[in-house]
Amino acid sequence: MITESIRKVGSGTIDMIEGTGRFFVFLFSGIFNIFTFPFQLWKIIEHTWFMGARSMGVILLTGTFTGMVLGLQGYYTLTKFGSEGMLGSAVALTLIRELGPVLTAIMITARAGSAIAAEIGVMRISEQIDALETMDINPVRFVFSPRLVAALISFPLLTALFDAIGIFGGFITGSWLLGINAGIYIYRVADSVVMADITGGFVKSFAFAITVTTICCYRGFFTHLQTSGGFGAKGVSSSTTRAVVNSCVLILILDYIITYLLL
């Protein structure tokens, strides 16, 4: 009984150490292979289109409503202190520093990250990744490196879009619906946001891009090793779920760590 428990703890620890090592080898191999010849320009464009351009709709929608709800909540809170004129600052800083990068990353995870994990997982179970190895094509370079570059391009751009449309959403609620002077709203936005806020937001979005893409590609790539979730189609479904859950949790943890370091 005791021996069995010790064995389980030991085996779990070994698995965890192995998994961590495998994850970082995968990440560094993916980064290294971005710079190997021939450059995968066409694939990067293709993935940027999928991950970035095709996520614009959902970013516009969520950004608008996030800004609108921030405007609404902010207005009624600030009214209590007679400072509703500060609404522009509240909305802009909340979006640029926090909600913009975090919600953009979560939306991309939900839309593109899950698709990436599922696609690579299917490639694994249908032996397409083995086929790459037999053709002497580096599978990490083939499936991960171009997606990583695409994410590093897409995440900051979509974050900027989310911030801009969110600030406009706050303007719709604050100025059009609740009657705050438009000039004051815009003035407060321009006055309160400094370069460090924008840089901090972009630092977060780069960190989230690397985290989300690595987790989603890694989960799909090693679908065959995650047998606890099942094999075949069930294995792919389990990898996809884990990819999304792990990404979302790590986004929030990283957000706290980066905020702590930047403040």
């Binding site: 010849f37 021939p38 696609e119 490639m123 249908s126 032996e127 397409q128 083995d130 086929a131 037999t134 053709m135 002497d136 094509i137 083939f142």
Partner: peptide
């Protein structure tokens, strides 16, 4: 070269791209 039991063709690529893959990836 290895011919897989279930072929292991890349289902998101055309037949031409599938066949060209071992050559096009190495430039």
């Amino acid at each position: 070269s290895y011919m897989f039991q279930e072929n292991a063709l890349f289902d998101s690529m055309t037949i031409y791209d599938n066949i060209a893959l071992p050559l096009s990836e190495k430039a």
